[in-house]
Amino acid sequence: MLTRRIMQRSIILITIVLSLIFAVMPISIQVAAWRPEWPLLVVIYWIIALPHRVNIGYAAAVGLAVDILLGSTLGFHAAAYALVAYPAAQYYKRIRNFSLSQQALLVMVLVFLGRAIVYLFEHYLNNAPLMLHYFWPALSSAIFWPWVFLVLRKIRRSFQLR
């Protein structure tokens, strides 16, 4: 029973670590601006699927890891991820019944929101100029959402995570 619980937790953790690796993996400059926000996608999925395991605290922790990896001021992404996790955790039952395309639309809004929060912090504390291409990943995240969802659901079902 105990080992099973540990295994379940480690599988969630492994998917998150993988998403972090994807987030910092070097890719060519042309597509780098379009890189989907993998960690946020994975966190949103787990919040919708298993809200009693992954919740706002988890989201904030992943955001902190993103902060460390990207070298931004500690807490920017943590705050943004926590704020974005809130509506997902609040309405997880409703979101589960959405179709994939509806979910993708919602994910686009959530990723945009998360990026907007980080941008506001950067703007007011570090004088960052407005860069429109900073918000492109909202679109690419929405495009990749169905695959993220299906792959993670497959993982969740085959390991019987509850």
Binding site: G57, A60, A78, A89, L125
Partner: peptide, 25 residues
Amino acid sequence: LQRVSLKTRLTLALLLAFLLIFADH
């Protein structure tokens, strides 16, 4: 499942994040 309400969790997480931002920045 919500032993601690979502709003409390959010407030706690944000509080922690702001503390971090303050300490770091």
